[in-house]
Simulated scan of single mutants.
Amino acid sequence: MDMESALSTRFAALADPTRRAILARLAEGEATVSELRKPFPISQPAISKHLRVLEQAGLIETGQDRQTRPRRLKAGALRDAAAWLGRIDALWSGRLDRLDEFLTRQTEE
């Protein structure tokens, strides 16, 4: 999957508040499906679907324990998305700084 497709898939996965909450929980450490389901008023199959979306987006992975199949954040999974957002932020921050300087000069004149 090319970088553009990977970013689109990751941002689509991050668009859902339940998936973001799952990622926030996994930031604290790995967890089983039943542990991840506890705070949500949705079924186990619905949680499993969210987990599949997150795994397909490359944001999480399944642990080695075949009994419990714990999920965990994938190392560096958000790095590409954060780098992309950082570039956009820098671009707009620079533009807004230049606009602020221009408006300040206009006010002073």
Rank of each mutant, 00 (worst) to 15 (best):
F40I: 02
D16H: 09
A21G: 14
A15F: 09
L23A: 03
V33K: 02
E30Y: 08
Q67T: 14
L14A: 10
P45Q: 14
F11N: 09
Q67F: 10
L23I: 05
G29M: 10
E30I: 07
V53S: 07
A21K: 13
A15V: 08
T9F: 05
L36Q: 14
I47D: 03
R66N: 13
L36T: 10
S34G: 08
G29Q: 10
T18M: 08
G58L: 00
H50K: 08
Q56H: 09
K49P: 00
P41K: 09
A13S: 10
K49S: 11
S43N: 06
K49Y: 09
P39E: 07
T9E: 12
T32G: 06
S43Y: 01
E28F: 08
A31V: 03
Q64H: 08
R19C: 01
L26F: 00
R52P: 00
R25L: 14
D16P: 01
A24V: 14
V53R: 05
P41V: 04
D65M: 00
P45L: 11
D65C: 00
K38P: 10
P41C: 06
S8K: 10
S48A: 14
T18H: 14
S34N: 09
A31P: 07
R19Y: 02
E61R: 03
I42N: 07
G63M: 02
L51W: 05
Q44D: 12
R66L: 14
R66P: 15
V33H: 00
A21V: 07
T18I: 09
K38Q: 15
T18G: 13
R25I: 11
L23G: 06
T68C: 01
E55L: 05
R66Y: 10
T18D: 13
L54F: 11
G29T: 04
Q67A: 14
I22K: 06
R66A: 15
G63Y: 01
L59V: 04
P70H: 05
R71M: 14
T68H: 01
F40H: 02
I60V: 15
A15K: 11
R66G: 12
R69F: 12
I47M: 05
R19E: 04
P17Q: 02
A46H: 04
E30G: 11
V53C: 07
R20G: 10
V53L: 08
E28L: 14
T9D: 11
E30K: 14
A57E: 01
D16W: 04
Q67K: 15
T18P: 11
P41A: 15
I47L: 03
G63R: 02
R10H: 04
V33S: 05
R20E: 13
T18Q: 11
K49T: 05
P70V: 06
E30C: 10
A15C: 12
R25Y: 10
Q67C: 08
Q44Y: 11
D16Q: 08
L26G: 03
V53G: 05
V53P: 04
E28V: 04
G29P: 01
A27K: 07
E61P: 04
L36A: 13
T9H: 07
F11D: 06
D16L: 06
T32C: 05
A57P: 11
L51C: 08
A13T: 09
P17G: 04
R69I: 06
D65Q: 00
S8Q: 12
L36F: 07
A21R: 15
L23P: 12
K38N: 12
R69P: 05
E35I: 10
T68L: 01
V53W: 03
A13G: 11
F11A: 12
P39Q: 08
T68W: 00
I60M: 06
I22M: 13
H50N: 14
L36I: 11
G58P: 13
